[in-house]
Design a binder for these strands. Sequence first.
DNA 1: ATTAGGTTAATGGTCAGACCAATTTATCTG
DNA 2: CAGATAAATTGGTCTGACCATTAACCTAAT
Lengths: 204, 204
Amino acid sequence: MTKDTKSKVYQEVLEEIRNYIVDHQLQDGDRLPSERELAEQLNAGRSSVREALRAIELLGLIETRHGEGTFLRSYQPYYSVEILSTFILQETRSQQEVLQLKLLLESQVLSNLSGQISIDFYKKLLSIIVELPKEKLHTFLFTELFKATGNRLLIKIWHLLEGFSNPISFELQNHSFYEQLLFWVKENKAESAIEALEKVYTLE
Amino acid sequence: MTKDTKSKVYQEVLEEIRNYIVDHQLQDGDRLPSERELAEQLNAGRSSVREALRAIELLGLIETRHGEGTFLRSYQPYYSVEILSTFILQETRSQQEVLQLKLLLESQVLSNLSGQISIDFYKKLLSIIVELPKEKLHTFLFTELFKATGNRLLIKIWHLLEGFSNPISFELQNHSFYEQLLFWVKENKAESAIEALEKVYTLE
DNA sequence: ATTAGGTTAATGGTCAGACCAATTTATCTG
DNA sequence: CAGATAAATTGGTCTGACCATTAACCTAAT
């Protein structure tokens, strides 16, 4: 018996596209082969190729431009956030897990950067924070901090979690909260920052 | 000029399906109309309907069963996360970053469980460790520890990192190393454990 | 030589129809 | 009534056709 090796064509296409990207070392903005080319190369129908592409598109990994082609792009939660938000609301458990992991990553970055950020960087962030609207504070600050760690993979995964958790995120904190957070990190007091952050995540 | 009002059909179908679910108060396990019904009701081609359904399926919101139909299911981000992760991992390609993130997650779980594991659990793990071959020690121990945290998403992502870091993994440690690690966690000395773990990851 | 305008080719967007495969439902038969 | 059989339903896939948009090319007027 050949086990459950029968996956749908569009899933195989998904795999192949991934391989193609790897083999050709495609970067953000690079163009994928046309739907017709892919269909022929992968020995599949164009409709199956399209199913795969639409799925990837909804995830926000590619961008399609009519008449031009299909292009790779840096991950951006696209429609997915909107669609997912409708469904997630009931599923508190998985949502809880997303938040938990998000908190974990954020705590770690605070810890990693504790006492490691320069005065200039600190002042720069502070000056931007002041002018930002309340709802953008969290994303901005942590995006910058994650960038500072230099780990792109970390950033991507965190962004991914951001996208999934956005609609139901925790209660918004004001400017002083994030200024305090940043201050603690600068002063090598990440424990205090993490503690405060955990409090925000767990109250609901 | 009504500018950006031209969205793709499959996106409108997405919307309509969402509305349908809300209007009919569908629960997990409930069945959606067939592809042909949807196509007719929404005045769209079946292929467009399928593009929408495939996209939702990849997101983990529905499940399709050949010959039966399409069913709502509890939201599980893990499937799409897997796809996304593979894309992201392949894209960055920096094994260093993978290891870094993997260490991060492992450190965090050690810290989380520090002083939290029961004697029984400790003894049980210890007894298994003794009998395991050297190359399975790391995966086993951390799999159990991650399980203990109860976050399935966390486990999933960590497993992915495991898979990708396999070829370039660090030098294998012997049994006593992992026994020591576990001991530290039990004794609420996660700092020591993390320190030892970091040393293993960074030497090369 | 430059440029404006139009033609052509490539590409994504969409639909219709056909056929297969898996499953359920209805029907027939003993 | 139970089991076997046939029909209908549904997802899975491919092909071909046509439209809309874009880019590339070519031509002709300046």
